[in-house]
Amino acid sequence: MFEARLLQGSILKKALEGIRELITSGNWECSSAGISMQGMDPSHVALTVLMLQNDLFDQFRCDRNVTLGLNHATFSKILKCAANDDIITLKAEDQPDECNLLFQSANDDKTSDFIIKLTDIDQETLGIPDTEYAATVKVPSVEFQRICRDLSQFGDTIIISVKKGCVEFSGTGEIGSAKIALKESGNVDDDEKVSVEMDKDTPCSLSFASRYLNYFTKATSLSDTVTLQLCPEHPLVVSYDIGDNGSLKYYLAPKIEE
């Protein structure tokens, strides 16, 4: 028996916004540790990894590991029936062919009960190697969303460059070019600030498809800040923390010189 009650149901709604356009369906793996889902886009360019630890839920019970094969378009349609301040409970039997979703309004005067049919998804799981990243950059998530949107007007590639105390985003296309630089702020405890950490102070510059970066920014409402991790010739990691007990991470393969 699996049962997970999320007081802040909007977390699930927001997470699905950041997933549904990248992965049409996924295996949501439920264990005593929490819920995780990993999926790649069909062209093997971006990997999406969602982690919701058991502590994120006010009630969590998972007697045996359960796989919920969910169609994300359907899941999203159902979650849109929940209000932002609803409490959401997910329930499933041990070897489920359906999952039950219960929405309770904040003042408990409305309950909605949905059943979503599960599908068998034959999906490969990828092992993500531990990487020592050359640069770790934290920026306000809204700022990152805006930069990705603005630079997409210039071309299909965004170059992210990190040098000491500064991260630079640039794009070039037929209409012209653009370069947006964010300087590291003094006080990095504030969510509005920018922090730039570098290993060995070596500048690092990589090119990425703007289309995917824009997909990732659909998760903006999950967190005030977004973390970017770069390493030469490695996938970029874009992470949105979900409080202290969860995260939505994206891995994006770089564009390389032909």
Binding site: S43, T125, D156, T172, P235, Y251, A253, K255, E258
Partner: peptide, 14 residues
């Protein structure tokens, strides 16, 4: 503006 690489060249199937 560069060739798109695949994640499969970085990550291995489990």
């Amino acid at each position: 503006s560069g060739k798109q690489s695949s994640l499969m060249s970085f990550f291995k199937k489990k």
